[in-house]
Design a protein around this nucleic acid. Structure first.
Length: 904
DNA sequence: GAGCACTGC
């Protein structure tokens, strides 16, 4: 029996430079001081010793297996790295024109396209369609637009919703090209940020042209396409185009590229335009059209050397706008201060006791009595008591009530920040029953994780005597459109991700929205008739809101983006990103590169390693991609595919509003005694597959609070991953997948593979009295997220957890976790560094320290060395037959993992 | 003692 002592990493207390760090930021939201979690780590960790056992029997068996493997294995280091094939097909368009396609054929095809277009135009239905199209504001700029496209390589279009830019402009180009007998040579691509819009816009245009979808107009999104060799106008998601760039770096098959919704400043779009700006000089014939909302069109024009801007006026019905002060006048609602006992000086007291954000502070400095002279005393008192930090649900309820009593028909859409607010407001409405007859009102929650998202009643018009009230998050701002909304109630906030580069911490905190978002929310009330927007915040705050939201590239960790930059051979990461419209914080770039080095994707020269090159072919975050490859190598392919698909896409467990205890119980029953959210995902997916085979999948999903759409997507993604693994030679599909699943039911092995992929996302579990506390290297104490199967568990069988997401919300939460052993970490975690004192092993930059007798340390190091060699060989020669060549090494690892079993 | 913005390859 041996003891391994776990010692705690020592470091000097870091000075707090969060203040200076934040001072450098220009945007309001970032000015809220961040704590520097790196301070006081030692204190929070305390010092512990951990005892684990390795029986002499285990030691002997591992020893034997290793010796056997040494005899069997001849290491072949001479094989050079094989570049991944990157084979992915993009059918159609002019890239694959064979030599036999002569000029004459092309001319004939162009003529055919024109004849077809003209004959369709002549039909009565097309004429009706044409007159509809001519009413759109976009039609009035048609000639100017086509002239500008001909004369300029880059063009910026600014236009509001309802102007028809997305459906008309690509169509104008298509018609013009076909009409001028260039149909066969043109290939127009229009990118959309979201899958649904790519499909629906393509469908709309096909129908305007009187064609079937997939003829001259088609779409391509991940795992789904409707296009043909005839297709000349293709709608795709920005992600699909970025993948296409891997094989076709100069987009040689494309004649016109339209990038839509760039004002949203998504990561993909920001990334794409850096590439495009560099590409344009090499492709003088390529036309680039950037489509944006009016609010920041100048920004893009400047980025492309003052490209001309064409503005298209929007068309929506007018929407009246009321701010908090007006809402209070109308509703007569009394806001009660959180400091009721100190009425009169409540604002000052609040200023002293709670930290508010800069926008709220602006309002707290306003002298209510002089600024709001014309308002009633009651309103002024309410404004005094109003808190910018906490939403007053009574005010929301009262506003709904006001609309129902005094305004005309029409659905009400309420923008809230999250699940909790939706749930509480729903309860409050039911409880108070202010609306009297509940059969007159249909109150519907709408949240990305609620099972109601796909229900028809959200989109359908309610019966004529019923009013629909939708309580939604940001999902209703651009992803889901409810046409019959006439009234919008806007709380003015949304949960927003941000990235704290200093603490390497992703955050998800409610913050004030931008003017652009506020405008978008208001617009949701004017789709079918004039509407009203009730803003539950003062005009003073609205006026102080930032113009637009911080671009995503400044709000997220960058490892996946960095991998894509290397994959597209765009040069050094930092200098490439410095060319962005708004370049990310150099510290965030540094963090991403360091992570990629830690997990073996980049070498010291910042070049892709063989592992890194394989990961480029997988559309996954590098950690998850690595987990998938490790699952393949260590013969847990099925579980790795499933877990990778869920982590990359979204959680298949839904969060119902009424039955959350049952939903929680269902998830826990899938986890059984694994202490793992990942195993819960895996078991749920497997049970769904079984249910599907016997045709009871619908009932199964309903009973177990699972989303059938998410599970189906996961299934499709698994197949895509198998194809990609087969392309890079990791999987031989002809052989069947059974060989890659030898340990598919061995949960210790699955957890070890999770550890291999998710490292360095490791936390320590430490007993603190009757409970367990959790510590991370970067920020010290963390909590298990309440939605995790590990929440509320006081005692864990194993000393560590791996996780894929750590997010700061109310506290710093580990969202998903799997309990793992020392051996999983030692064999599959980070590099084993001999400690300076010479008596043990360090990992995670010295944060974890293992010490043990020499023989044990040596045995572990030897096994780890063999595993690493095997891994390296497989990565360099992907066709290597692990079941045959690595059998004993893998068996030795399994032996050790099982010796700390929790399942057996 | 308690909680889950949204996209995408």
């Amino acid at each position: 029996m041996v003891k391994i002592l776990l010692q705690i990493w020592h470091r000097d207390k870091a000075s707090t430079y969060s203040h200076a760090y934040n001072k450098g930021k220009t945007l309001v939201f970032s000015k809220v001081p961040l704590p520097d979690y790196r301070a006081d780590l030692d204190e929070r960790h305390g010092s512990t010793q951990k005892e684990i056992k390795m029986s002499t029997e285990t030691e002997r068996r591992v020893e034997n297996l290793l010796t056997r493997s040494k005899e069997a294995l001849t290491i072949n280091d001479s094989a050079g790295p094989s570049a991944p094939s990157g084979k992915q097909s993009f059918p159609g368009t002019s890239t694959t024109e064979s030599d036999s396609t002569s000029k004459v054929d092309k001319q004939r095809f162009s003529a055919q396209l024109r004849d077809l277009q003209n004959s369709k135009k002549a039909s009565p239905s097309a004429r009706a369609m044409q007159s509809f199209r001519e009413k759109l504001p976009a039609y009035r700029v048609k000639d100017d637009f086509l002239k500008a496209v001909a004369a300029n390589q880059v063009l910026v279009i600014s236009g509001e919703t309802g102007c028809g830019k997305t459906t008309q402009l690509p169509q104008f180009i298509l018609e013009e090209e076909i009409e001028n007998l260039r149909g066969a040579d043109c290939s127009i691509i229009c990118t959309q940020p979201r899958r649904i819009s790519a499909i629906s816009v393509a469908a709309r245009i096909a129908s305007e042209r009187g064609e079937n979808l997939g003829e001259t107009v088609g779409y391509q999104i991940r795992l789904e396409a409707k296009r043909s060799a005839q297709t000349r106008l293709l709608f795709c998601t920005t992600g699909v185009l970025l993948r296409r760039l891997v094989q076709e770096p100069d987009l040689s098959g494309v004649s016109h590229l339209l990038v839509d919704e760039i004002h949203e400043r998504g990561m993909n779009e920001d990334f794409l335009i850096i590439i495009l700006r560099d590409l344009l000089p090499q492709r003088p014939d390529l036309r680039l059209i950037l489509m944006s909302a009016t609010i920041n069109a100048d920004l893009f024009s400047k980025y492309f050397g003052n490209a001309p801007i064409i503005h298209i006026p929007g068309f929506t019905f007018p929407v009246a706008e009321l701010f908090l002060e007006d809402v209070l006048e109308k509703t007569r609602y009394k806001i009660n201060s959180e400091f009721d006992d100190y009425r009169g000086s409540s604002r000052r007291r609040r200023q002293q006791s709670t930290k508010s954000d800069p926008l709220t502070e602006i309002f707290e400095d306003v002298d209510i009595d002089s600024q709001y002279k014309s308002y009633s005393t009651s309103t002024r008192q309410s404004l005094e008591a109003w808190s910018g930090t906490q939403l007053d649900l009574g005010l929301v309820e009262s506003t709904i009530e006001h609309i129902c009593r005094h305004e005309g028909d029409g659905a009400i859409l309420v923008f809230l920040t999250g699940w909790d607010e939706i749930s509480k407001l729903l309860d409050k409405i039911k409880e108070n029953n202010f609306l009297g007859n509940s059969s007159k009102f249909l109150v519907l929650p709408l949240h990305g994780s609620m099972p109601t998202v796909n229900q028809r009643e959200i989109f359908d018009r309610p019966p004529s005597n019923m009013r629909k009230i939708v309580l939604a998050t940001n999902i209703a701002e651009s992803s889901i459109t409810i046409d019959d909304v006439v009234y919008v109630i806007d709380c003015g906030k949304a949960k927003e991700t941000s990235y704290d580069a200093l603490n390497k911490l992703a955050c998800l905190l409610p913050s004030w929205i931008s003017k652009a978002s506020a405008h978008q929310r208001r617009g949701r009330a004017g789709r079918v008739q004039p509407g009203v927007c009730y803003r539950l915040y003062p005009k003073v705050i609205h006026d102080a809101m930032p113009q637009y939201q911080l671009p995503e590239i400044l709000r997220t960790p960058l490892q996946e983006l960095c991998l894509n930059i290397k994959s597209l051979q765009l040069g050094a990461v930092a200098s490439f990103l410095a060319k962005a419209l708004q370049p990310p914080d150099p510290l965030a770039v540094k963090n991403a590169i360091e992570l990629l080095k830690t997990i073996g994707v980049l070498d010291d020269m910042e070049e892709l390693t063989p592992l890194g090159r394989h990961l480029c072919t997988l559309p996954l975050d590098p950690n998850i991609g690595k987990m998938l490859l490790m699952g393949c190598i260590f013969q847990c392919l099925g579980p790795a595919l499933t877990i990778a698909a869920a982590l990359a896409h979204r959680d298949p467990f839904v969060l119902p509003i009424n039955r959350k205890e049952e939903a929680d119980a269902a998830k826990r029953s899938f986890a059984d005694d694994s202490y793992s959210d990942h195993i819960a995902l895996l078991k749920a997916f497997e049970a769904w597959k079984d249910a599907k085979r016997s045709g009871r999948d619908r009932a199964f999903c309903w009973q177990n609070f699972l989303s059938p759409i998410t599970l189906q997507m996961m299934d499709d993604m698994r197949n895509q991953f198998i194809d990609l693994l087969s392309d890079i030679g990791f999987v031989n599909k002809a052989r069947g997948l059974k060989d890659y699943n030898h340990y598919g039911n061995d949960l210790e092995m699955v957890c070890a593979v999770l550890c291999a992929g998710l490292y360095p996302n490791v936390i320590q579990c430490k007993r603190r009295g009757k409970r367990t506390a959790f510590y991370s290297k970067e920020v010290g104490k963390v909590d298990i997220h309440p939605s995790s199967v590990n929440a509320g568990v006081h005692e864990f069988p194993l000393p560590y957890m791996v996780y894929s997401e750590k997010v700061k919300t109310a506290s710093i939460y580990i969202r998903d976790s799997t309990n793992i052993s020392d051996y999983a970490l030692l064999l599959f975690g980070g590099a084993l560094i001999p400690s300076k004192t010479g008596d043990g092993i360090e990992m995670l930059g010295g944060y974890l320290h293992f010490s043990a007798p020499k023989s044990v340390i040596q045995l572990i190091q030897r096994l780890r060395g063999e595993l690493d060699k095997l891994l390296q060989r497989k990565i360099v020669e992907p066709g290597l037959d692990i079941p045959a060549e690595g059998k004993d090494v893998v068996a030795a690892a399994v032996e050790l993992l099982h010796s700390q079993n929790i399942y057996h």
